[in-house]
Design a protein around this nucleic acid. Structure first.
Lengths: 239, 239
DNA sequence: CGGTTGTTTGAACTGATTCAATCTGTGTGG
DNA sequence: CCACACAGATTGAATCAGTTCAAACAACCG
């Protein structure tokens, strides 16, 4: 897979489920076996209804390419994106209905399996549950960091932090590559708990300060170290 | 255990680990077996250092009585409480170090076991991992709701929502009982992403509106239905 | 080309923070 | 029982960050 200087997130097709899981730390043999689980691949279009909140979520999903979001809305219909799933990330099935919905941020290829089939594979070797519990731990660490972000940082830091996280989680090398921003400013607002107007102003500020510059959807990181400082971003929580 | 009209959270001693896990949905036989895991009980004092962020977290903990918090702080030392553990809740061990710390909100009795012992028990029956994954799911659902709270609700709703969640998770029957508020206003601020000054004003507002009244630490809910509405609180996410 | 979606900008407004002072309750030691 | 210390709660005034509303602009797509 050639890696050009500008790889949009949605073009980064995962190398395949087994490879992805191996990269995440699952033993190759088990990853191979896991891939045998019955599954189908679905193309999910951005901002189109995909899975609504409040309905049974008896499927496993793995993001093969693209970017998914989990979202909720509060009583007054204000929308909050509560989690992201990048290439290689998954959404595990749960007992009963989920109170969050799922939508694509960009066009995504998603592998979907049935809960029973997933459960059967997981039960077949204790190593699997160890592995998936570890993945759940990682996502919960990310949730915690998002809480700190929403609760304790100002708007500049919040937006910048999301940018840093996006760079890391989509494996962009800022020294050589730019980031094709997958989000609309409204979506960034839905993640950071702001309004799109304010997100826009933060971007303008960052540009004015010479930390980034933009060309369309493309974001160039002109001072990565300073940007991380502004965001109080430390990548530890992602590993 | 006599249940008087005013039971402080820290007096609600859990009925024992096995009973708690059974109540949470684990088969009685497995709960019984789980209790055999080597463990010790520790008393944790409020606001005293207990587990610092950034160190190995190779223990399981279960809250026997009291109330624990997980916290992080952002780069500038501003503290954010990212999760609560009520009686019967647990904190699972993780690979490597945790980026959150643990502190008690009120004096708590905590059962602590070693990661290896926990792993051994969990590996002994696939039912255990199903069960603990379900618990992790529940906590992640709570994290999501907290994100909505921090990101999308105004200060009144945020504080009120926390009150509602506390009532539910500590099994207070608002029709008959009051809640002994376990938090200082600073801690409520650390959970909701505010300042203690503002939390204080919210409480004053709620009282002025006749939704609650207070006597010392004690909170009486004078209009529970309206309070839930103000908080856009729906208890679904807790189950 | 026209419609749609997203971005950008300005001006007025408001909710929350900050700073600082005061008040209250609790526990301690004399 | 009082004096004192300390932590938390309460209040006011000034300030500021972020929202809201509204309008203009740009990019994209069939």
């Amino acid at each position: 897979m050639a890696t050009s200087a500008t790889v949009p997130i949605d073009a980064k097709v995962g190398a395949g489920l087994a490879e992805t899981l191996t990269a995440a730390g699952l033993k190759p043999a088990l990853a191979k076996r896991f891939e045998q689980m019955p599954q189908r691949q679905v193309t999910v279009l951005p901002r189109r209804p995909f899975r609504e909140p409040g309905v049974a979520r008896d499927e496993v999903m793995f993001v093969r390419s693209g970017l998914l979001s989990k979202y909720k809305s509060d009583g007054n219909g204000r929308r909050q994106i509560v989690a992201l799933r990048f290439v290689g990330d998954g959404i595990l099935p749960r007992q009963g209905s989920a109170d969050y919905g799922v939508q694509a941020i960009v066009r995504s290829e998603v592998l979907i399996g049935k809960r029973e089939d997933f459960a059967a594979v997981v039960d077949s070797d204790a190593e699997y549950s160890r592995f998936f519990m570890q993945l759940m731990e990682r996502h919960s660490a990310i949730s915690y960091e998002w809480l700190v972000n929403c609760g304790r940082r100002d708007s500049t830091a919040r937006v910048t932090h999301l940018l840093c996280e996006t760079v890391e989680r989509s494996h962009v090398d800022v020294a050589k590559q730019s980031l094709i921003n997958p989000f609309t400013q409204q979506q960034i607002a839905d993640i950071t708990g702001h309004t799109s107007v304010n997100v826009n102003r933060v971007f303008a500020d960052l540009e004015r300060q010479g930390l980034i510059h933009r060309k369309g959807r493309e974001i160039f990181f002109d001072d990565w170290a300073e940007l991380q400082r502004v965001a109080s971003f430390r990548a530890d929580y992602l590993r």
